[in-house]
Computed example of a mutant assay.
Amino acid sequence: MDSKGPSLYPQAGSSVDMSQSLDEDSLVDGPLISADALHSAIRREFQTVPTPAHAGLLSLLHVVYVVLSMCLAVLCVLKVGQEEVCASILGNIRGDSVILFGKVCLWVLVLLFTGCAQHHHSRARSRGYLRFYRQMQGLKQLPLTVHSAGNVLLLVVLAAKLSSTVYIYMLLSVLGLELLVTLPCLLYYTVKVMQFNRERAAPDVTQEEHSHNFSITSLPTETGFREGSSLEEVVEKQADLIEYLKQHNTLLSKRLLNLTAQH
Rank of each mutant, 00 (worst) to 15 (best):
P220F: 04
N258K: 15
Q247F: 03
Q20D: 14
L154M: 01
E222Q: 14
R255Q: 11
A117F: 11
T165N: 13
L162F: 08
A160G: 11
L183Q: 14
L112N: 06
E227H: 12
L32K: 12
E84C: 06
V63P: 00
S230R: 05
D2T: 08
P10W: 04
L219Q: 14
T182P: 05
M1Q: 10
F132H: 07
N92K: 15
V67G: 04
T206D: 05
A53L: 14
V80Y: 13
S3H: 07
A239V: 03
F132N: 03
S88K: 10
I89V: 15
L171F: 07
G95L: 02
S34D: 13
N151V: 05
V16T: 11
A41Y: 03
S215H: 05
H62E: 07
E227T: 12
R198K: 13
K246E: 08
D96S: 15
R43P: 00
V205C: 07
L154P: 00
L109S: 14
L144G: 15
V181D: 07
L130E: 08
L68Q: 13
L241W: 12
Y189K: 01
V28K: 08
D29G: 11
A239N: 14
G13N: 10
G115V: 02
L142P: 02
S26E: 13
G13P: 02
F113V: 01
V152T: 04
K103A: 12
G176F: 07
V108N: 11
E178A: 09
L256M: 10
S69L: 12
L154G: 00
A55W: 09
Y9T: 11
G56V: 02
K4L: 09
L180T: 11
L109G: 02
N258P: 00
H210F: 09
A53Q: 06
V16S: 12
S34H: 15
R123K: 12
S253R: 13
E84I: 11
Q262H: 12
H248I: 00
K4F: 09
T48R: 12
M170G: 03
G81N: 05
Q47N: 11
G228W: 12
E208Y: 08
A239D: 09
L245S: 01
L142N: 04
L251T: 05
T145V: 06
L38K: 09
R226Q: 11
V49L: 14
G30F: 02
L144M: 10
E199Y: 07
G56Q: 05
T250W: 05
S19K: 10
E243D: 10
V174M: 04
H263R: 15
Q47L: 12
E208I: 01
G30R: 15
V80P: 02
S218W: 02
L61N: 15
V181G: 05
S88V: 03
H39A: 06
A12Y: 04
L111G: 06
F196T: 01
T260S: 13
A55Y: 09
Q135R: 13
I42Q: 06
H212W: 07
V193M: 02
T223P: 01
S40G: 02
Y188D: 13
Y167K: 13
D25C: 13
K192P: 00
R200P: 00
K79Q: 13
A124M: 11
W107N: 03
R125F: 12
L257T: 08
I42R: 03
N258C: 10
Q47R: 14
S21F: 13
V80N: 06
